[in-house]
């Protein structure tokens, strides 16, 4: 039985939640601990904190945010952004994160995925894969981007997903840089390509503007989980509404208690 997870994502800068539109133009939207707790009560299956803090002092703040969240929120918490080493991952896991996401550092040094998997187990290791389409729509080719979507890596997204799985990643958090912030739905072609290429779970991210987008990500994209931010942050829909909508349209989700 495959149950699709619904995951609100919080972009966190120096301990405060912000939502990046195309990863720029940030807006303050609250306290991460409160928001995570609110989403858990609404029936979120997991919460993702994406640390977009540039400075290293800011990252110590993130460990503190995770520590506070773990005292109040009893659903899985994934933390990504700025993780460069096994030690960075350890600090977040010890603070109470369930999973740690790596992106740029893994592209620069793929063996980091293996070291993390050996140290903590694959179930703790999420590779955040930011991809941008190459060529016209429907080309079926996507390139991996790093550093918050700024730097092209020259690596094919599907090949990279397979490599990550082989190195011991436990999950792929797949963000379409073309769709992100556009609120016109996931890039379903990209989602389907990567979901079919991997035997590990794939989380679809980037582009959710309506509840139907979540259904499409699961049914057409084949995603194991769907991640969204602004649709939840600005009170347009609760997680409970999203799950009820998905369930009515044939997506198996954990019902909200």
């Amino acid at each position: 039985m495959r149950t699709v997870r619904v995951i609100p994502c919080l972009d966190v800068d120096a301990g405060r939640v912000v939502k990046g539109v195309q990863f720029e133009n940030l807006r303050d939207a609250g306290d991460p601990v409160e928001l995570a707790s609110l989403y858990a009560d609404q029936g979120a299956d997991e919460v993702v904190f994406l640390d977009i803090t540039a400075s290293s002092e800011g990252r110590d703040t993130m460990v503190e945010v995770v520590r506070e969240t773990a005292e109040q929120v009893f659903i899985p918490l994934t933390v990504g952004g700025g993780v460069r080493s096994v030690d960075d991952a350890r600090a977040l896991l010890r603070a109470g994160a369930e999973k740690v996401g790596v992106n740029s550092a893994a592209v620069a040094d793929p063996a980091l995925i293996r070291r993390m998997a050996e140290e903590f187990g694959s179930q703790c290791v999420v590779v955040s894969l930011d991809a941008r389409r190459v060529g016209p729509q429907g080309s079926g080719r996507y390139e991996v981007y790093t550093h918050g979507g700024r730097n092209p890596s020259g690596i094919d997204a599907v090949s990279w997903a397979r490599i990550c799985e082989r190195l011991g990643a436990g999950e792929i958090l797949l963000t379409s840089m073309d769709a992100d912030g556009g609120q016109a739905g996931f890039d379903l072609g990209l989602t389907r390509l990567v979901a079919d290429a991997c035997r590990i779970p794939v989380v679809a991210s980037g582009g959710v503007g309506r509840l139907q987008d979540l259904v499409d990500g699961a049914l057409q994209g084949g995603a194991d989980a769907v991640l969204a931010a602004s649709i939840f942050h600005y009170g347009r829909h609760t997680v409970a509404e999203a799950k009820a909508y998905m369930a009515e349209r044939g997506v198996l989700v954990r019902p909200v208690e």
């Binding site: 039985m1 495959r2 149950t3 997870r5 179930q123 436990g170 999950e171 035997r199 590990i200 954990r254």
Partner: peptide, 11 residues
Amino acid sequence: GEKHPQMQWNQ
């Protein structure tokens, strides 16, 4: 035939 790991809520 199922994804490994099982990483989800289940009944």
